[in-house]
Structure formats: structure tokens, C-alpha cells
Nucleic acid binder design. Sequence first.
DNA 1: TTGTACGCGTTATCAT
DNA 2: ATGATAACGCGTACAA
Lengths: 363, 363
Amino acid sequence: MSRLTINDVARAAGVSKGAVSFALNSRPGVAPETRARILRVARDIGWTPSSRARALSVSRALAVGLVIARPPDTLGADPFFPSFIAGLESVLSERGYALLLQVVANDDRETPSYRRLVDEGRVDGVFLTDLFMDDPRPALLAELGLPAVVIGPALGDGIWPAVGVDDAPGIIGAVEHLVALGHSHIGHVAGPRGMVHGHSRQQAWSGALLRAGLAPGPSIEADFSAESGAAATRQLLDLAEPPTAIVYANDLMAMAGMSLAQSRGLDVPRDLSITGYDDTEIAAHLQPSLTTVSTDVIEWGRAAAKRLLELIDTQPPTDIMLPPAQLVVRNSTGPVRADLQGRTKTTHRRRQTTRGARRMEKQ
Amino acid sequence: MSRLTINDVARAAGVSKGAVSFALNSRPGVAPETRARILRVARDIGWTPSSRARALSVSRALAVGLVIARPPDTLGADPFFPSFIAGLESVLSERGYALLLQVVANDDRETPSYRRLVDEGRVDGVFLTDLFMDDPRPALLAELGLPAVVIGPALGDGIWPAVGVDDAPGIIGAVEHLVALGHSHIGHVAGPRGMVHGHSRQQAWSGALLRAGLAPGPSIEADFSAESGAAATRQLLDLAEPPTAIVYANDLMAMAGMSLAQSRGLDVPRDLSITGYDDTEIAAHLQPSLTTVSTDVIEWGRAAAKRLLELIDTQPPTDIMLPPAQLVVRNSTGPVRADLQGRTKTTHRRRQTTRGARRMEKQ
DNA sequence: TTGTACGCGTTATCAT
DNA sequence: ATGATAACGCGTACAA
């Protein structure tokens, strides 16, 4: 049992409490040999400082928080958090920090959550995820005096540092890949535009199209869920001139969209090219395997943790370079069908015929 | 800023620290009106007891831990944890407990993790997940004196209470469903047999077949990953007499297996019926949608949290009834093909021909 | 109800 | 320079 206290060590080493504390935190004022003896004794009797007592005396929680504000069922399908948490944890644990998790169902209950975390003194800082475009949380935390790191694209406010992999290169890569394959009518199934990563991916998509000299194709706002991805895809395919390729803001929607297309008898990628975002584990094993954008989420977590600890210790920010998101080309993307190539909004309109011809073209 | 202490409240209310503490914890010894006044003052000036100080004085961490021992990349695809954590958290937070998360890559680093959690006094108890058949952790924790609740099927050792949804009914339901559809050659892609939930699902599968009077079909051990699910499926399909239906130990492997079958030109469910386990969000949106087993993971988390808190408070265990796992029939299962029905190991062997005939049977 | 010791490190103050 | 001593952080709990 961990009944051991710093006094036991002090007694066993024949020194005072203070000396033990100094030795342990490698502070000057202890003779080298005394220090060595103290450390040896501590190890021998197996004593570790109680973080409870430590937290009280240094007036710090020695823990940071991650508040996840999502409906739990949506959470389940998101591959982001587990890996991200693994990254966070790897840095935090080696610095003696613990990670405290809080899941709140909706946004109403979120503000009190932060407040409680602060009031109770449970954490020294938090990670902010899933930010909305006009999110009140950064300001709230500033007001509460709780350091925070924003996960994702940087906001304009500059209140807190942001750590994130830029969405743009990956999405742009996907669009350019599709353009190179001859697609000129490229749609987008977006995440909520009110959310920063929904917004930024949408921006990247339209920007890339413009740069390629193409008119932005149809874009439909969804909510990152499979259900919404399928619905959005249905809408796109029902258009008078459906896109020949669709860029999805995440894998889950892409998978649902791909399945929906297949259920309508379309062949992916012959009749429709599809790209996702996340590089979920299953992505490589779908039929066809999914072309998607891959991010090093674990490294991302590590970077975020480092930044938050720096913030807490009021250390200057270290430059953090995250490997950029990368397009992983697989089999859900392919050359545009010859009879659809170069088609623009003003030409053709025999969709019915064309669509009929598309059916049943299994390889 | 939360510089407020219990003394501020005491002073403002004109009472002693002790009185405030008693009032707050609703303990006898304070006049009703005094209590009311104290509470009002506390609310007015916005004071919340510091959990740091509380933890030190009650000699408790007021937090519990969840140690996740998995390679992070496998973690990402698992829909279990996020929902489970949401369930845990909903109970813990209303009791003033925090959830501490720790992710360890492999089992070597796991034991020290628990030890540290105990030594540093960070938690009052932990949840044990992903148990192996002969897992040393329950005994280790007993030795460390740290209360634990096992997540999943009960172990034989009886050291710690187990909270879990029985795997059997769901798997049995799947098998019976397939048998009712005329399948008699039902394979299984198992999780690691050294893990309790891999083992229990495997047992449920073979038991259900025996009860149905059928010989257990081929079973292949995989590791719950998409990769392994695809590989196992490949092996099953390459058998001289491949099964007409496969029961997978989780959705991820089922999805990978289904895609693999499709890539070989098989039609699901016409040529091969498939069942998963988990009811991942995407399951309902696949093509075909996946017949799978659904569990109320959030409720499971709530139950586990309640049980652990009881254990910590040495309260008698409350009876916890978890809704049983339920088979969700979708479109990845269907009647066995007539020409394969009733086939036994001793009959037929014109697989090549049959397989050839199977190709290209899109609806 | 109040006063006060207690839990357990950390750190400022002193003595050597 | 070394190291000891005591105050401190903030609730809880028991004796008065």
C-alpha cells in the first residue's frame, strides 16, 4: 500500500523533508552525495510523491482536460479521438500530467463543464475541439483564466494558439487528382459550415476548383454522419447534371455515399469517383478501396500536448511542424467516363438516357 | 479567478470553516437556516470546493482511471470506446468524479502504468478492458489495493466484479437467423482467442451451431482489425467448401470481409451471408447494409461506472440489468442459394464451377 | 458550532 | 553552500 510519505524517506535517509523534496526536484542546495543517497532510499522503499499533495501545494492540478462536445453516437464512428488521445497521452504522461476526459452531449452543457473544471481546480488547461466559426469558448476560457489550445485550423481571434494539420493541402490534392483524371464537374459533401473544419475543407475545395479554372460544382452541407452523407449524395445524384466526382469532408460520409451510389447501380469509380478524408482503417479495405486524405493524428496529439504544457508553464512556443495531410490514392477514383468528359452545365441535358446507360456496368 | 476558499465563504456567512463544510456536505450539526444562509452565500460569491484540497483531506483522488491497452491505430477504428466513455462520464460527473485516461501502446508498459496511477494517488479505481484469458491485471490490482471493474464477460477468478453485455445472445441470434435462412455451413472469423471477448464470441458461435444440430463450420482466428478480417475471409473463401455464411466477431472485420467477397465477384447476400458485431454507425449505410449485433454501449458505460463507485465506497453491489445485445437484421444476410443448400462436407466438390457461376450476379 | 489537528509535499526563512 | 524548520495550500473531521 502506498502509505509511504515523504517523511518515511526523510527518516530513512536521515535528512529532512525539505531535503528530500529538493533532491527529488533536482534543485540546488543539496550535496551531490546526499542527493544520491536520498534518491536511492526513495527508490528502495518505493516511494513516489503523491500527486494529490503535490497538486495542493503547487496550486496546480497537474492535469489537463479534453472536453468532447458531441452526441455520443456520432462520436463512436469518429476515428479521430482515440488516436488523438493516444498522442496527447504519450506526451502528458512523460511530463507527469494526467489527461482528464469529459464528454458532454450538447453545447448547452458545455459551458458549465468548463466552468466546473476551473472552479474545482481539476485541470491546468484544456484542449478545444470541434470549434464553431463563432465559438464562444475561446473567450470564455480566457475569461476563466484557463489556458487552452485550439485543435484544428487557426481561428482569426488569436486568443489561443491553434495546433492543427491544415486541411487545404489534402483537399486540394484530392481535387487536383480528380482534375488530372479528367473530371470537371466535381461536387462536395461538406461538414457543417458553421464548424471550422467543415468550413475550411469547403473553402479548400472551392479554392482548388477555381485555381484549376473550373466552376465550383454543387456542394451540399452535411454533418459528418453516415446518414447525412448518404442523404447529401442522394441529392447530388438526383441533380439534372450530377457530378462525376465527389469530394467528401470525411471518410464516414464518403463510405455512406459510395454505398448509396452502388445501391443505385453506379460503379465506383467508373461512373463516379469518390474521395474521403481521414484515412480510416477500413478505408483501405473497402470495395473499391477509398482514395482519401491521411493525417498523422497521433503526432498531432503530441504536438497539441506539447503546446498546451508550454502555455501552462508560460514558456515560449516551440515551433511545431506537423507532417502535412497527404492524399492516399486508391481505387475509388478513376478517369472520368469518356461520354461525360468535358461536359459543362450548358451542354447536354439528356440525363435520363445517360443515367440509364450507366447502370449495371460492373467490370 | 477562483482564488476563493472556504474561508471566504465562512467569513462572508459569519460562521466557521467547519460549518461551511458541514453545510455543503449536508451533514447534521448545522441549523437549517444557517445551512441555507451558508449555501446562499457560497452560491453568491461563486465558490466551489477545490477538488485538490478535498482529495488531499479525504485521502481520495476523486477520480477513476481507464487504461486503454491497444496499439493506437487499432483504437481508431473501434466504435466502442467513445460511446463507452460517454456512458462512464455521465455517471461519474454527477457524482463529482473525474475520468482519467491513459493509453498504453503495448502490454509491457501497462503494468507500470497501473502502478504509477496507484503510487501517485491519481485514481481511486480503474476499469479493466480488453482482458486476456489469463490476464495478470486483476491480481495485480488486487495486490496494489486498487478497486477495479472488469469490462466484458465475467472471468472465472471472481476477484473483481465484471460488467458486460453477454456476447452469447447476440451471436446465437445471428446463427439462428442464418440457420432459419437455410444455411448449414456457417463459418466464423474470430477475435483473438486469447482475449475474453474473442473467446466468448467464438464459444457462442460454436455452441449455437451445436444446438442447431449442425457441425461447427470453419473458424479462423483474426485480431479484430480490418486487415485480419480480410485475410481470414480470403482463407475461408479459398476452402474447398467455403461457408455460405460467415459470422464475424466485429463489424470492422465483417466490412473488410464483405468488401473482399465483393471484390471476388461474389454477391452479398446471394452468394455469401455476413453478420457483424457492434452495429457501427456505418453498418446501416453499407451496400448491402450489414446485419449485426447491437449493444447499448452507453448504458454499459453507465453501469460500469456505477459499479466501480459502489466498489470504491464499499457499498453493496446494486443489481444492474443491461439490455441484452440484439441482432439487427439488415441486408447482408439472406437465404442460402438453392444449389448450395444442405450441402455437407461429404457432398459436392465442384467448387470451381460453382464459383464461376456465381460471378456477376448483381441484382 | 467553533477551534484545530491533519493529509503531504513545496518553499521561504534561518542556522550552521 | 548545506540542510533544518516551519509556514502554507484548502478542505475535512474530531474534540471541546
